[in-house]
Write a protein that binds this DNA or RNA. Structure first.
Length: 610
DNA sequence: TTAGGGTTAG
């Protein structure tokens, strides 16, 4: 009687994640002397794991006189719960070696979940073979965990094959399969599956929408979110909201983001730290850094992602001092920065030329916070050094770092070579890159651009031919302007826009006024072998200029023009936009592939250093 | 005691 009461209470604590209540119960159980009564020990482990007290769970597990598969399932689940899937996999073999036990269906499901989180498909497949030969090979829950594992590892055929073999498909396995297709860019198959699903719930819709956001089709995700609401799905948790806030961030659609922010308030999920963090990011990515800071200031309990998001936001808007101050505040608030925080911080230093500070932070990351620098951190460091002209030091980083450099690393160095007119070094690096990684499309593009900058057109055409042979395509440059109710996309060199004549007329007028004020086109940014006049024409038709002109024609007078470009803004366009903002007396904000440029009164917030 | 959906960089 007594122990069944405790059992019930322990399960309730595990369900509601009530740490304090759980500890009290444990104390009572010890006091009464029931701590060895089956099945209380395993339930205690389970309770501690679910309440996020892994150490307590481990302590009990180690002390158990006799462990069974339930004890193992509980402790393995506790590691998954604590977001330590690699630990789940590393302790799993002890089940055979120490306790001579075979996994049961619960253990299998937990292990496949861990493999899925880690993308450890090879290990997952090996254990899958054990599962097939086990007495549990018909278990639908385990099969469902396999569907999820293969989906997360991008092996959709395997996932679907297992999905088909599940006799009684519940909402969980449908969702795992939908999520797999959506995340891997196969949205039409994901949508089709959702349509076939007998009872669509908020989980499956969320999996679809968030997967599509992750695979990069944010506008489709927004349309599906609208459809979901039309179909009467009630939003009873905040998950889908953080995804659609993220979608508006990707689209740099400020007005849409504001509307979704209103929905967040209406549904009462302002207090969700996930949603708040997404909102901070959305406002920062939609170039409203003040609104981002406002949301951030109102978060009652900020976590490391909240701080990192605002630091990265400040950094991308060129507010390095703000980013560094925020970092000091974060540390004072007792939060430990993570690897992303340092990417933001070094990036901030890099973009304003704070070389010493950036190097100090890079060293502090290992020394003070025991974070091993990743390749990306080395790339940031290299960017920091090379942007400020320390090309030898930058090359030295490449030579001594414990990673093989990728194209981003070489891109940073190559772009600095161009900036500092060191074309010989650039060509050497590009050649080296080509010899190292001839399969990578970006390698060809880098090489081509480097030769073009040096005016070596024979080599450019040679590389272009190679690109054609290997079917490598350069991503076309495009820009879009967000006018709240509508947004227009412009590609370089053309427009099908109804007001094409007005756009061209306005750009011509502006061109004349700019030239009167001393503008000289910098045709070195045209990477094709053309006559000077043709090069100027190419620059004239760059997508960011078309988008800005459209914004000037259509936006409410006096408002900020917000433009997004998929590639980095070209150097000549950067000069032109400084002239234009001053001629028309408007603020223009351009988000390019790398950062934000706030053009105002003839100047840019990046101080021409980007 | 097991399985599905959310935020920060790139």
């Amino acid at each position: 009687m007594q122990y069944s009461h405790f059992l019930h209470q322990l399960r309730a604590c595990a369900k509601t994640r009530s740490q304090l209540q759980g500890k009290k119960l444990h104390a009572q159980i010890i006091k009464i002397g029931l701590e060895q009564w089956e099945p209380l020990p395993n339930n205690l482990i389970d309770m501690y794991g679910k309440c996020g007290l892994l150490h307590a769970a481990l302590h009990l597990f180690d002390e158990l006189p006799q462990r069974d598969p339930v004890s193992w399932a509980s402790i393995l689940t506790a590691h998954n719960q604590a977001n330590l899937p690699h630990c789940t996999l590393s302790i799993f073999p002890n089940m055979f070696t120490f306790d001579r036990l075979q996994p049961d269906n619960f253990v299998f499901a937990t292990i496949f979940k861990a493999c899925g989180s880690l993308g450890a498909v090879k290990q997952g497949k090996q254990i899958h073979a054990h599962f097939v030969l086990s007495p549990f090979s018909d278990d639908d829950v385990v099969k469902s965990s396999l569907v999820d594992m293969y989906s997360k590892c991008g092996q959709l055929d395997d996932a679907h094959w297992i999905f088909d073999s599940i006799s009684w498909k519940n909402s969980v396995c449908w969702t795992a399969m939908i999520s797999g297709y959506a995340r891997n860019g196969r949205s039409s198959e994901a949508i089709e599956l959702l349509q076939r699903m007998p009872v669509k719930d908020l989980f499956s819709w969320t999996a679809l929408i968030s997967g599509i956001v992750q695979s990069g089709d944010s506008s489709d995700a927004i349309k599906l979110f609208v459809q979901m609401q039309r179909e009467g799905i009630r939003i009873i948790d905040p998950f889908v909201l953080s995804s659609v806030v993220g979608a508006s961030a990707n689209l740099a659609a400020l007005e849409l983001g504001r509307q979704i922010h209103c929905l967040v308030v209406v549904f009462g999920y302002e207090s969700s730290v996930f949603v708040s963090n997404a909102l901070v990011d959305m406002y920062a990515k939609c170039s409203d850094i003040l609104a981002a800071k406002d949301v951030f200031d109102k978060i009652p309990k900020r976590d490391v992602v909240s701080w990192t998001t605002i630091i990265v936001g400040a950094a991308q808007h060129g507010k390095a001092e703000d980013a560094l101050t925020l970092f000091d505040e974060m540390v004072l608030a007792g939060l430990k920065p993570n690897e992303v925080t340092f990417v933001g911080l070094i990036y901030a230093c890099s973009h304003v030329g704070l070389v010493d500070k950036g190097c100090h932070l890079f060293n502090s990351m290992t020394k003070d916070y025991r974070i091993n620098p990743s390749l990306q951190h080395y790339t940031c460091l290299l960017d920091l050094l090379s942007r400020s002209g320390h090309l030898d030091d930058a090359e030295n980083v490449i030579k001594t770092m414990p990673f093989d450099p990728d194209e981003a690393t070489w891109a940073a160095l190559l772009s600095a070579c161009k900036r500092y007119g060191n074309s010989q070094r650039g060509i050497g690096i590009a050649n080296h890159l080509l010899s190292l990684n001839p399969q990578e499309p970006s390698s060809y593009i880098l090489l081509s651009n480097t030769y073009a900058s040096a005016g070596m057109w024979d080599y450019v055409s040679k590389v272009r031919k190679l690109m054609a042979v290997t079917a490598v395509k350069k991503e076309p440059g495009y820009s879009w302007v967000d006018l709240g109710k509508e947004s227009w996309v412009f590609y370089a060199g053309k427009t099908a826009c109804q007001v094409k004549e007005e756009i061209v007329g306005l750009l011509k007028d502006l061109d004349m006024e700019m030239k009167r004020r001393g503008y000289v086109p910098d045709t070195s940014f045209v990477l094709q072998d053309l006559e000077e006049q043709e090069k100027e024409q190419q620059l004239f038709w760059h997508s960011e200029r078309l988008a800005v002109a459209y914004g000037l024609l259509k936006a409410v007078p006096g408002t900020v023009i917000r433009v997004v470009k998929n590639l980095r803004v070209c150097g000549d366009c950067h000069t032109v936009l400084k002239f234009i903002c001053s001629i028309v007396g408007r603020e223009i904000i351009v988000r390019d592939a790398n950062r934000f440029h706030h053009f105002k009164d003839g100047k840019c917030s990046c101080c021409d250093f980007w």
